[in-house]
């Protein structure tokens, strides 16, 4: 079995930094600087999304993050017990084909899910018996 570490934080945006730093450190032997940047962005956006939207910004619930280091990939699971995301939420692109046309059109939010897709090689989401699992995979040596 490949090594795996689980971390648990409260659903508090102020705690996300702790997980982000831990995940980055755990992956630092497997991934280069660019991939580490991507993983940190993806993981932070994913946990922020759980706290802000899943748990509606309320503290007092758990977010569990497990990191598995395999020979060819890093697998990060983010597990929560919030109401699940809509099934098509993860597929939406950040912009239409042309991108934003004026300063007023630039997004100030709603970029998180797109960033998860852009920073990871594989993203999957499942909900079962009140528990949601977002699985983020970064392939080693794919930069």
């Amino acid at each position: 079995m490949s090594p795996n570490l689980s971390l648990k934080i409260d659903s508090d945006l102020g705690s996300v930094e702790l997980v982000a730093k831990a995940v980055r450190a755990l992956c630092s032997d497997s991934l280069g600087e660019d991939a580490l940047n991507d993983v940190e962005i993806g993981v932070v956006e994913a946990i922020n999304n759980v706290i802000k939207h899943g748990y509606a910004g309320q503290k007092g619930s758990a977010v569990e993050v497990s990191v598995g280091l395999r020979q060819d990939r890093v697998v990060i699971d983010i597990v929560d017990q919030a109401p699940p995301m809509p099934p098509d939420a993860l597929g939406a692109p950040l912009y239409g084909h042309a991108g934003p046309s004026s300063t007023e059109d630039l997004p100030e939010g709603g970029m998180g899910l797109s960033l998860i897709q852009m920073t990871m090689d594989e993203v999957s989401y499942s909900s079962e018996q009140g528990s949601n699992r977002l699985r983020l995979t970064k392939l080693i040596g794919s930069e």
């Binding site: 940190e40 956006e45 922020n48 100030e108 939010g109 970029m111 998180g112």
Partner: peptide, 8 residues
């Protein structure tokens, strides 16, 4: 580090 909220 900046996330999408900071960028916003």
């Amino acid at each position: 580090f900046i996330d999408s909220s900071g960028l916003g």
